[in-house]
Each structure stands twice: as structure tokens, then as C-alpha cells.
């Protein structure tokens, strides 16, 4: 199993060069059965990453470009009246894929956003009283552009935590970008091979549950979330849902690292991705300042008994 994970990472690294950590985070997010939010400037490889992820696991993929005039029906699908049969038939929207890339999610109106978030949560689409289950597995990778915010509808805080993780890709370093420029082929999706089938993927996901969590680790996680609740530095404390998400994500990270037990470093590795968007009040203070999750990490000693 381990070599398959390594292979997957290797495959994706071919197209997203020098971003090992982000790839691993995205993988662990998928293993933890959570949705991913990528926040970055255009052209940083958000779409490429999503494509690559779909490719390695052989998931069918669709992309929805969110715009201000996108209506829920545009995404979910709708019942269209068929005059011949004198009845409504359901035309599924692009959301009915195993991996959905919701591009520039903050451009759509709150209504559309909440329709998406609802579908993410329920794993089904309800329309005119009938519910249509979404495929399994079902992942949403949402992207946001943090800089250009005029005319956008930032996701409400209360709904941000529907995304298990939020990551940023960032600029590649000199070497990586150079290597990227040297690549001949431009069509990235063709370079990637499928490394595991759906069954193996599901098996891997089951394996996450078997990761052993010692009391020390649970106490560490509890100390972290409690600190966020007590300290004045954190306007939005971490909820029990957040601590659960943290644990689950850390377990997936441990699987990717090839371990069947958790160590503090696993928690530390996923914490910024899992917790940052839950700690922040708004997108406004996204740039600049040291991240709140790092503050949190620095405040708590993992070894303190």
C-alpha cells in the first residue's frame, strides 16, 4: 500500500513541482474523506492539482466555474419538462462527479454557495422533493482567490469549516519553476498514470481508522483546542468538530507517512491546514500577519505531561 501512496505522490509531483507538502496534505484530506479548499492567486496550479488528484485515483472529474450569475440549478441540475412524456426528468448538473473542482467559489452568490455546501455535507442533492445521491467517493475541491475580492461573496465563517482543510500552494521555488519551464509537454494530464483503483483507494481510507492514537496525543490535541478557547489571541476558538477533523486529518497524514500510530508531528503537520480557516474571522486578514495556527502550535508543548 505504502508504495502506491508514494507512487501517487510521485505522479502528482510531476506536474506540481516542489510542492510535496501540499500534495501530501491534499492526499490526506481525501483519505480523511474531507473537502479541500485551495486559496491562491490564479495560475498557481490549483486546477492542475485537482486534475492530477482525479487522475491518479481514476476518479471522474468535473469543473464548475463559479460566477456571479451561476444559479444553484446550473450546478446541481434541474427537472426539465418533457412535453412528449408529459413529465419532469432530472438532468444532473456537473456536481454529479466523484471529484468536483468548484473554481473561484467566492464569485458565486451566497445562494449558490450554500447549495454547494449543502450538497457537500449531505452527499446528495434534493430537488422538488426527491433526493439524488451523489457518487461515492465524493470530493469537492474549492478554490478561492484571496486578493480580488470586490464583487465577491466571501464564504461565511460558519460554513468555512465544511472544508476539512484549506491550503495555499504558493509560488514554486527557483529550481522547481526552472524545471517546470524545461518540461516539453504542456498537457499535464497525459503525463499522469493512474496508480490505484477505486477499491484500493477505499481500502486505504479504511486503514485510516486503524491508526492508533495514544492518550498523550489526545491530550495534546485537547491542549491545543483548549488553548484556542482560552486565549484572547484567537477570536474564533476551535470547535469540537475542529478537534475531530484535526484528529482525522492527522491520522491520514500518519498513513501517508507510513506509520500506524500518531505522533505529535502528524498533528503539527496538518494543523495549519485544518485549523487556520476555522480560527480566522474573515478573509480580510488573510495576508501578512503570522498565521494564527502557528501561534497556536508555538504556545503548546506536545510533550508536557
Amino acid at each position: 500500500m505504502q508504495d502506491k501512496i508514494d507512487q501517487a505522490i510521485q505522479q502528482i509531483s510531476k506536474v506540481i513541482i516542489g510542492k510535496q507538502d501540499q500534495i501530501k496534505l491534499a492526499l490526506s484530506c481525501m483519505l480523511a474523506n474531507g473537502h479541500l479548499l485551495i486559496e491562491d492567486l490564479p495560475g498557481m496550479g490549483k486546477t492542475t492539482l485537482s486534475h492530477a488528484l482525479a487522475q491518479v485515483f481514476g476518479l471522474d472529474f468535473s469543473r464548475i466555474q463559479f460566477t456571479s450569475d451561476l444559479l444553484p440549478a446550473d450546478m446541481l441540475g434541474l427537472n426539465i419538462f418533457d412535453p412528449n412524456e408529459q413529465s419532469f426528468t432530472f438532468h444532473p448538473g456537473p456536481i454529479f462527479s466523484q471529484l468536483v473542482l468548484a473554481d473561484e467559489i467566492n464569485r458565486a452568490s451566497p445562494k449558490t454557495q450554500s447549495a454547494l455546501l449543502e450538497a457537500m455535507e449531505e452527499k446528495q442533492v434534493s430537488l422538488d422533493g426527491t433526493s439524488h445521491p451523489l457518487p461515492s467517493p465524493f470530493f469537492v475541491i474549492g478554490t478561492q482567490n484571496p486578493l480580488h475580492q470586490s464583487g465577491t461573496y466571501p464564504l461565511p465563517e460558519s460554513q468555512l469549516d465544511r472544508f476539512l482543510m484549506r491550503i495555499q500552494l504558493g509560488y514554486p521555488d527557483w529550481q522547481a519553476e526552472k524545471q517546470m519551464l524545461q518540461e516539453q509537454n504542456d498537457d499535464v494530464t497525459q503525463q499522469i498514470e493512474k496508480v490505484m483503483d477505486l477499491e484500493a483507494f477505499q481500502q486505504l481510507r479504511q486503514q485510516v481508522f486503524t491508526v492508533h492514537v495514544s492518550d498523550n496525543i489526545l491530550n495534546y490535541i485537547l491542549r491545543l483546542v483548549t488553548f484556542s478557547r482560552e486565549s484572547e489571541q484567537f477570536p474564533n476558538p476551535l470547535s469540537p468538530r475542529a478537534s475531530k477533523a484535526l484528529l482525522h486529518a492527522a491520522k491520514s497524514w500518519a498513513i501517508i507517512a507510513g506509520r500506524d500510530f500518531l505522533i505529535p508531528e502528524d498533528v503539527q503537520a496538518v494543523l495549519p491546514a485544518v485549523a487556520e480557516h476555522r480560527l480566522r474571522t474573515s478573509l480580510a486578514d488573510f495576508t501578512g500577519q503570522t498565521s494564527l495556527s502557528n501561534k497556536l502550535l508555538e504556545a503548546v508543548d506536545p510533550l508536557a505531561a
Binding site: 505529535p264 508531528e265 503539527q268
Partner: peptide, 9 residues
Amino acid sequence: RAHWQGPLE
């Protein structure tokens, strides 16, 4: 050891 550092790190 910086007090936030885990044992592996």
C-alpha cells in the same frame, strides 16, 4: 528543544 517541537523534529 523549542517547547513546541515534537520528538521526531
